[in-house]
Each structure stands twice: as structure tokens, then as C-alpha cells.
């Protein structure tokens, strides 16, 4: 085999390898829609975020409109500060409600945005005023048990 033939076959090999890497980046991972630099950031404060993770989806009416950028804790009020990066195509009114929801029974948690009727839109850095915390299963169960216990008066021994 002469040299140019080596070059050709090795070039083909490298091309296939690079193509596989591009496949992994674009089709398997999601480089195309993973542009963390664009869009605008909203801030929302929750009493409890449950199991919300960074990069969890932000959905409105079931459509993904952004991702969770960062999660932090306010040192004074002990509220969770969640920064949401919203795609710049979508705008939400001032009285939007942000709530932490779960997809399916045991699925991942995401932030749901429900736009209100206010004509003024939220802009970069604004805070979503109304929020609804995550449902914590243990708290629900204990509330249910306590209310049950309150309903039925304890029998005297």
C-alpha cells in the first residue's frame, strides 16, 4: 500500500470518528438547544423546593420554556432562591405564578409558570412574585394523619 492510500484510509477513519463525536454531541447530548448564555433570568423564591435540581426544565402549559440556572438559599429569610433562565422568545406577565411540580408520580421535578393577565411583562432579573412550593410527601402524610386524629376524639381509656 503506498502512502497516499494510507492517507486516504486514515483520513476516512478520522472523518468517521469525528462524525461519531458530532453525533454524540448533537443527537445524543443536546448541544444545539443547550445554550446557557442566551435568554433572560428570572428569580423566584420558594419556601421549599423539594428535589428541584439545576438544569431542571421550566415549563409553561407543558412546553419547555427554559431551565433552572441555579439554586441557592437566602441567608436572612431562609427561603430557596431559584434562578430561571427563560428563552428570550417567551415573555411572562408580572403576576405570573411559579410552582414546583412533578412530572408523573415519581418523575423529575420542574418549575411550572402560569402567566396571569397583567399587561406588564417580567424582564431580566425580575422576581416572580407568587410562588407555590414543592409538595413534600412526608408533610402531606403527617398533615393528613394529624387532621384525622383531630377529627376522631381520642377514646377515654
Amino acid at each position: 500500500m503506498n502512502r497516499s492510500r494510507f492517507d486516504f484510509v486514515v483520513g476516512l477513519f478520522v472523518a468517521i470518528g469525528l462524525l461519531a463525536m458530532v453525533f454524540m454531541a448533537l443527537k445524543v447530548g443536546n448541544l444545539a438547544s443547550f445554550d446557557s448564555g442566551s435568554g433572560y433570568v428570572l428569580e423566584a423564591r420558594f419556601d421549599n423546593i423539594g428535589g428541584l435540581k439545576v438544569r431542571a426544565p421550566v415549563k409553561s402549559a407543558g412546553v419547555v420554556v427554559g431551565r433552572v440556572d441555579s439554586v441557592g438559599l437566602d441567608k436572612e429569610t431562609f427561603e430557596a432562591i431559584v434562578r430561571l433562565r427563560i428563552t428570550s422568545d417567551y415573555r411572562f406577565s408580572k403576576d405570573t405564578i411559579a410552582s414546583i411540580l412533578t412530572s408523573g408520580l415519581l418523575g423529575e421535578q420542574y418549575v411550572g409558570l402560569e402567566s396571569g393577565g397583567d399587561p406588564v411583562y417580567l424582564a431580566q432579573g425580575d422576581r416572580v412574585g407568587k410562588t407555590q412550593s414543592a409538595m413534600i410527601l412526608e408533610k402531606l402524610i403527617s398533615q393528613f394523619l394529624f387532621s384525622k386524629a383531630a377529627e376522631t376524639p381520642a377514646k377515654a381509656p
Binding site: F13, V14, I16, G17, L18, A20, M21, F23, M24, V28
Partner: peptide, 15 residues
Amino acid sequence: LSMPLLAAIFTSAGI
């Protein structure tokens, strides 16, 4: 040089 290329091909073929 060839290991990452081969690994990418292996992964893509697997998927």
C-alpha cells in the same frame, strides 16, 4: 489519537 475516535464510534454504533 485513535482511542477517542474509536470510543466515539463504539458509542454511536451502540446507540
